[in-house]
Nucleic acid binder design. Sequence first.
DNA 1: AAGATTACCTGAAGGC
DNA 2: TGCCTTCAGGTAATCT
Length: 297
Amino acid sequence: MPELAEVETVARGLRPLVGRRILGVRFGKTDFIADPRRLASLLPGTRLVTVSRRGKLLLIELEREAAAAKERGEGLWLLIHLGMTGQLVLREPSEPSAPHTHVWFSLDDGRELRYVDIRRFGRMRLATAEELAAIVAPLGADPLEVSEEEFRRRLGASRARVKSILLDQGVLRGLGNIYADESLWRARIHPLRRGAELSGEELARLWRAIRSVAREAIRLRGTSVSDYVDANGRPGSYQKRLRVYRRAGQPCKRCGRAIERIVVAGRGSHFCPQCQPAHRARANRRGAGKRKKPLGS
DNA sequence: AAGATTACCTGAAGGC
DNA sequence: TGCCTTCAGGTAATCT
């Protein structure tokens, strides 16, 4: 699934396109595109200026031709979210299109950038600078840039299950189910624990675990367990490093106990019952619901 | 009103 | 063989 490491890898694969022009766009199904006619009218003739990533969101900055840019001085961004099964791949126009290809961008170097998405959970839209600011405003901290202090503050302020918190893009941007499970295993924290009940030591372990998992996943160009490939159609290799994700019933790499799978936040959650104990201490949570003081302030 | 659950979508896999 | 159900998880919408 495209999480931060996969989107980062796709962004890096597209970066050589900076300077290229989009000559035209063709569409298949468009129900995942905010305003396909706007793309059809504005994209042709634009030049790619930057390719970047914000969480799981891919940002392609475009520059209009001098004449068109005059009417509105501001920039234009093509925003693409890959959802679950979205792929952006560079192909020669002569190559047959994969099933579920829904957008074809023709480029001035003769190639095509194709958007493929089996389930169409992805999203695509154009945005002005103002619209872009509003879209990224709700996103939380970057997992690789957040300080340990801010991380502890954000996680410790929530009574939700820690697994849910890690998946919340408003807290940390870019983590998905795979890296959330892998990070919790590394930090030896049970997915059902609540953010506010984690000790300072546990939060510190989790902060470090997320950083090392994210760095390693980017280095290995992402995880390919089902559909993910990069801009050149190549899979990543972090799947070889997975310790718990989709390993239910198999032995823990640390202690040998069978990995278990439960559902948290509607997601399959994999953990080691030995390494990741469900309770910090002898928790008698009777009366815990009476707490009324919100933490902080 | 934060936190939990469900809907969207298609293909793979398992049951009978 | 083939039909049916379940599962996979990105976010948005809906519930409690």
